[in-house]
């Protein structure tokens, strides 16, 4: 049981060293790129961009496939849905009620490519940014909103804790499931309702345990003088460096090229 999203791989690459705020902004720019691209050929650009970042971040390509794994069902579903449902004129293939049009195929490919690219980008960010750096970045970016009582620090702390406890709770769920299996529980047969009911012996202990952990963690945090965000300092100070400037420039260049090409060469496939 392993999820790639939210799992940080410690390292010291130039991508790792970027300020988390920069990475969040770059991520937004990247999402913009992926959605701006309206032609198949131009998809090469965000693809090159993200592959370059993977390379610079010393992230092995296998993580790319791991990132796709949890969404493969969604991916296939979205592909088929768009393939068959999108209205179009140029029929490529038809058999009984199944009709595949050129427009449908194009739409299906677009959606799938976008999903894959977005997933890769998001994984890249979490793989190269420690969760606490990410939350620090978010907190700093959102802190101007504190003036209107937006709980920036609390939100960031919640994210930190959630990320810390995901693996622990997954392990726990696995253990409880095995324990109930050993008592003859059956999670695999029966209809939907029977199966949902069969989950009760896992869910209740899991919730009880999550509350117990929350209670103990709250005590541990209090014991360590936690009293909200006020007056807190940070081990890692956030500072923009030359690397951040370069990353921003490169990203801007990619974005600009995409915008310009889309505007100037309207007929691209």
């Amino acid at each position: 049981m392993d999820i790639t999203l939210g799992q940080f791989i410690p390292g010291n690459s130039c991508i790792h060293r970027l300020d988390p705020r920069t990475k969040i902004w770059l991520m937004l720019a990247y999402i913009l790129m992926v959605f701006l691209v309206k032609s198949m050929v131009l998809f090469v650009l965000p693809l090159v961009y993200v592959l370059l970042a993977l390379k610079l971040g010393h992230i092995h390509l296998s993580y790319f496939f791991k990132a796709i794994k949890p969404i493969r069902v969604l991916l296939v579903f979205m592909f088929l849905l768009n393939l068959f449902v999108t209205p179009g004129e140029t029929v490529l293939f038809s058999w009984r009620f199944i009709v595949v049009t050129r427009e449908g195929l194009r739409q299906a490919l677009f959606i799938s490519l976008r999903l894959v690219l977005l997933m890769t980008g998001a994984s890249l960010m979490t793989l190269t940014t420690s969760p606490i750096a990410l939350t620090d970045g978010l907190e700093r970016m959102l802190s101007p909103l504190k003036a209107i009582h937006f709980p920036a620090h609390e939100l960031a702390m919640m994210m930190t804790i959630a990320l810390r406890f995901i693996p622990t709770l997954m392990e726990e769920a696995d253990k409880i499931k095995k324990a109930q299996l050993a008592r003859g529980a059956d999670f695999e047969s029966g209809n939907l309702i029977a199966r949902a009911k069969a989950m009760i012996p896992i869910l209740i202990p899991l919730f009880v345990s999550a509350f117990r952990r929350a209670d103990e963690l709250a005590m541990a945090m209090e014991s360590r003088c936690y009293h909200g965000g006020e007056g807190r300092t940070k081990l890692h100070q956030l500072r923009f460096t030359r690397g951040d400037l370069w990353a921003a420039l490169v990203t801007a260049a990619f974005l600009l090229v995409i915008i310009l090409v889309q505007a100037l060469v309207p007929g691209l496939v």
């Binding site: 940080f8 410690p10 420690s130 969760p131 606490i132 930190t160 804790i161 990320l163 810390r164 622990t168 117990r212 952990r213 103990e216 963690l217 541990a220 945090m221 360590r224 081990l235 890692h236």
Partner: peptide, 13 residues
Amino acid sequence: NPDNQLVTTIVEE
């Protein structure tokens, strides 16, 4: 419980 008193993901943090 060792699991319920570490707040963040990375040791030094």
